[in-house]
């Protein structure tokens, strides 16, 4: 059942981040997605993100919750989610942290007679980046606490397995 869940999740991420962008790129004329950058770059980014998310999902689903790999996979998946948000609000520049300036040619207006070369559009979403950074930190703390509790639980189970019920011996002897 776990393997099936992992396979479905991996297929979903690969479809969403690798196949869908390629299908969309075929429908977009030219080789640029405007302020987001060239189609090739976007597809490259989304492929890497898709592969990372698929592997992380598989690791998360297939490993026990008390394992360090599971913890690393959970934390990595949270961080990748934050990175995707940074990528989109930065219009392809994740390290702009939500404040990005883009120059857009205004051909349509220029064609209408007014001479306008280009417009500079500034997007300021730093507030949301800061909020989501706090949320990410909280998520990581929760992951660590959950991992700690799972470890404690697992240790308790292990001790129980090593020391079977005393009544069993008393009735058996």
């Amino acid at each position: 059942m776990k393997a099936f869940k992992a396979a479905v999740g991996v297929a979903f991420y690969l479809f969403l981040f690798i196949i869908v962008p390629r299908m969309l790129a075929e429908k977009v004329p030219g080789d640029s997605l405007g302020p987001l950058g060239s189609t090739e770059t976007i597809i490259g980014y989304s492929t890497v993100i898709g592969l990372v998310l698929a592997s992380v999902y598989a690791a998360k689903t297939l490993t026990p919750k008390h394992s360090a790999i599971n913890l690393a996979a959970c934390m990595l998946s949270d961080m990748v989610g934050f990175y995707i948000f940074l990528f989109f609000v930065g219009f392809g520049e994740p390290w702009s942290f939500g404040r990005v300036e883009k120059a857009i040619p205004l051909n349509a207006i220029a064609a209408a007679g007014e001479v306008v070369s280009e417009a500079t559009i500034t997007f300021d979403f730093r507030f949301f980046v800061e909020l989501l950074a706090v949320v990410l930190a909280m998520k990581l703390v929760v992951r660590l606490l959950e991992f700690y509790l799972e470890r404690v639980e697992e240790n308790r189970r292990r001790v129980e397995r090593k020391q079977p019920d005393a009544d069993f011996y008393s009735t058996g002897s």
Binding site: L106, E114, V115, V116, S117, E118, A119, T120, I121, T122, F123, D124, F125, F127, F128
Partner: peptide, 20 residues
């Protein structure tokens, strides 16, 4: 244009030349 107590916004700046 800014919202959420001016914490979030988008601005457009352009140069308009006339008479060309």
């Amino acid at each position: 244009g800014r919202t959420l107590e001016e914490r979030v916004g988008i601005s457009v700046k352009t140069e308009v030349g006339g008479g060309q």
